[in-house]
């Protein structure tokens, strides 16, 4: 199974939302990481055939997904960043409706199983209009999974969820990620660390890095430091490095610094994490949550 993005670009007037995006994906979880406006949703809309790329194409096992049309949608599952559901439908009716749209034969057993998977069995007869954001998200992933998709795309799946729901959701994504290409877009670094095997860093519609999580962290070796400082404000005022974390101590503060060079004499190297990566590439502190 291979999903190939071939020089995909998308322009909105003069603004280039996506620029020459090329990569090849096989089974595994891919995180699209980037700040707002990096082009993540545009890429997903292109993959969903909701918008047409200005240039390039996307191939699934060698076939253009636009040419495949319904044949691609048959093996495709998508949960957009924001979406609505029919408020008067119950959870089970919602899944029945999408099962008919996805041409699922004998859907009842699939629906029962999915409601259990997303922990909504008890609410199957409740109207969706009364669901919380987290419940709607879980129902959204159940909809995406109805046709047992080979390509599963989740756009900001944990956005707007409380920490407990987010953990539940991460686990859910991990559970359903076998034997599929799972792509999820996020600007929440902790999601990536928990779920993804591979990370694509996107900024201004262009790929900054496309690698596995281990390699990405390895690339940061020798660039993340910790140091004890007396005057935090002085450290914050320096442009030569980026501070990813500050912990107050009795004598001042312990700061975590991302820098190509040793920032202080007393600084020592420490193990990098994805937040450091985010800071290094995007020059802003990664979001902990939405």
């Amino acid at each position: 199974m291979e999903l190939k993005f071939n020089n995909v670009s998308k322009n909105y007037g003069k603004k280039q939302a996506l620029s020459g995006f090329s990569t090849v994906m096989s089974e595994g979880v891919y995180a699209l990481l980037g700040p707002n406006g990096a082009g993540k949703s545009t890429l997903m809309n292109c993959l969903s055939d909701l918008i047409q790329p200005s240039e390039g194409n996307i191939l699934f096992d060698g076939a253009d997904i636009r040419q495949m049309g319904a044949r691609f949608r048959e093996i495709y599952g998508y949960m957009p960043q924001s979406y609505g559901l029919y408020p008067s439908f119950t959870a089970a009716d919602t899944l029945r409706y999408f099962a008919s749209l996805k041409d699922i034969k004998n859907p009842e057993s699939v629906i029962t199983e999915l409601l259990e998977t997303v922990n909504l069995s008890d609410c199957s007869k409740q109207r969706v209009g009364g669901f919380s954001g987290g419940m709607k998200r879980r129902l959204g992933i159940a909809i995406a999974l109805l046709n047992d998709p080979k390509v599963l795309v989740l756009d900001e799946p944990t956005a707007g969820l409380d920490p407990k729901e987010r953990i539940r959701f991460r686990n859910l994504i991990s559970e359903v990620s076998f034997n599929r290409v799972v792509i999820f877009a996020t600007h929440i670094v902790s999601d990536v660390e928990s779920i993804a095997n591979n990370v694509i860093l996107l900024q201004n519609g262009k790929i900054l890095r496309d690698t596995d999580v281990g390699s990405l962290l390895e690339s940061m070796d020798g660039k993340v430091w910790e140091a004890d400082v007396e005057n935090v404000n002085e450290a914050l005022g320096k442009d030569s490095f980026k501070i990813s974390n500050i912990v107050k101590t009795p004598t001042g503060a312990k700061i975590r610094i991302v820098s190509d060079e040793k920032p202080y004499q007393n600084a020592h190297l420490t193990i990098p994490n994805l937040e450091d990566v985010y800071l290094y590439y995007f020059n802003e502190v990664a979001a902990e949550n939405d």
């Binding site: 319904a70 048959e74 998508y78 996805k102 046709n147």
Partner: peptide, 18 residues
Amino acid sequence: SDNVCCLNEVSKFGRRKL
């Protein structure tokens, strides 16, 4: 208005047949 289009249109029969 319900913003369900994006879910419908990525489904097999969510376009012409719908």
